[in-house]
Amino acid sequence: TQVHVDGVTYTFSNPEEAKKFADEMAKRKGGTWEIKDGHIHVE
Score class of each variant (00 low, 15 high):
residue 42 V to F: 10
residue 18 A to Y: 01
residue 28 R to N: 14
residue 35 I to A: 05
residue 18 A to H: 00
residue 14 N to Y: 07
residue 21 F to L: 01
residue 3 V to E: 00
residue 19 K to V: 14
residue 8 V to G: 06
residue 33 W to A: 05
residue 40 I to P: 02
residue 43 E to F: 15
residue 3 V to C: 03
residue 33 W to N: 03
residue 5 V to M: 11
residue 21 F to W: 07
residue 27 K to T: 11
residue 35 I to K: 04
residue 13 S to I: 10
residue 6 D to G: 08
residue 16 E to M: 10
residue 1 T to L: 10
residue 33 W to C: 11
residue 23 D to S: 11
residue 22 A to K: 01
residue 8 V to M: 13
residue 2 Q to P: 07
residue 11 T to F: 14
residue 25 M to T: 09
residue 14 N to V: 08
residue 6 D to T: 04
residue 18 A to N: 00
residue 31 G to Q: 03
residue 42 V to R: 02
residue 36 K to H: 12
residue 32 T to L: 07
residue 31 G to I: 04
residue 10 Y to Q: 01
residue 28 R to S: 14
residue 27 K to F: 13
residue 36 K to N: 06
residue 26 A to S: 06
residue 27 K to L: 13
residue 36 K to M: 09
residue 41 H to W: 15
residue 37 D to F: 05
residue 22 A to V: 02
residue 36 K to A: 07
residue 24 E to V: 09
residue 43 E to R: 14
residue 20 K to Y: 09
residue 1 T to P: 05
residue 21 F to C: 11
residue 39 H to C: 15
residue 37 D to C: 14
residue 6 D to L: 05
residue 41 H to K: 06
residue 27 K to A: 13
residue 26 A to G: 03
residue 6 D to P: 01
residue 38 G to I: 03
residue 19 K to M: 15
residue 19 K to Q: 10
residue 8 V to T: 10
residue 14 N to K: 08
residue 21 F to R: 01
residue 29 K to S: 14
residue 24 E to P: 00
residue 25 M to F: 06
residue 20 K to Q: 12
residue 12 F to W: 03
residue 18 A to I: 01
residue 34 E to R: 11
residue 11 T to V: 12
residue 35 I to P: 03
residue 15 P to G: 08
residue 18 A to E: 00
residue 27 K to R: 13
residue 21 F to V: 02
residue 3 V to G: 00
residue 17 E to C: 14
residue 38 G to F: 04
residue 24 E to G: 05
residue 32 T to M: 09
residue 36 K to R: 13
residue 20 K to G: 08
residue 25 M to K: 04
residue 22 A to D: 01
residue 19 K to P: 00
residue 21 F to Q: 01
residue 28 R to H: 13
residue 20 K to W: 08
residue 39 H to S: 09
residue 15 P to I: 15
residue 11 T to M: 11
residue 39 H to Q: 12
residue 33 W to V: 13
residue 22 A to E: 01
residue 24 E to L: 11
residue 19 K to D: 03
residue 30 G to T: 03
residue 43 E to H: 15
residue 30 G to A: 04
residue 8 V to R: 12
residue 28 R to D: 13
residue 38 G to H: 04
residue 29 K to W: 15
residue 25 M to W: 12
residue 7 G to W: 05
residue 29 K to Y: 15
residue 41 H to V: 13
residue 5 V to S: 07
residue 13 S to Q: 11
residue 24 E to N: 06
residue 23 D to A: 12
residue 12 F to E: 00
residue 8 V to N: 10
residue 40 I to H: 02
residue 34 E to V: 15
residue 16 E to V: 09
residue 4 H to T: 08
residue 3 V to T: 01
residue 34 E to F: 15
residue 20 K to L: 12
residue 41 H to F: 15
residue 33 W to R: 02
residue 2 Q to W: 12
residue 40 I to R: 00
residue 15 P to S: 11
residue 27 K to P: 03
residue 20 K to V: 11
residue 23 D to P: 00
residue 28 R to T: 14
residue 4 H to P: 00
